[in-house]
Amino acid sequence: MQKSLYIDANKCTGCLQCEMACSYENYGVFNISKSRIKVFNFEHAGRMVPYTCTQCAEAWCLHACPVEAIKLDALTGAKVVNDATCVGCKVCTIACPFGTVNYVVETGKVQKCDLCGGDPACASACPTAAITYVDADWTGLDKMKQWAGKTDTQPRANG
């Protein structure tokens, strides 16, 4: 079963444990400026929203890459940057409609979420389950259940 990151922004408190976990997983340092997931704080609305790559099926970044440095990981569905091939041309950062591929000056390569090979550190670190890693075919399950709970049904008499 393929899995997908599922983000419920209503549960996010803005603690940034996800950003630290991401940077620690990939760089061995607690450094949110290196994180591939970002939490946006809309202060005046009182909303905190984590955002990262959705791993598009027809990934613009993958198609745009002139050297085929971005490949599909068939196991996880992640679109993964191969550092050895990436030439840092940044075309993918322009192609991505969501801004979730970004250039790293220090390495001269781009970086994006690769789902940590199937065990995303951000989801493990999130203390409120705002970020979970669920069945890719059922990212709507939580919302369906919420609405189902609101459906008006008669209590059954006599079991």
Partner: peptide, 14 residues
């Protein structure tokens, strides 16, 4: 409106 955390906080009393 909501509770909120400071950096790194898993309590979120804000």
């Amino acid at each position: 409106v909501t509770n909120a955390a400071c950096f790194g906080c898993t309590i979120a009393c804000g």
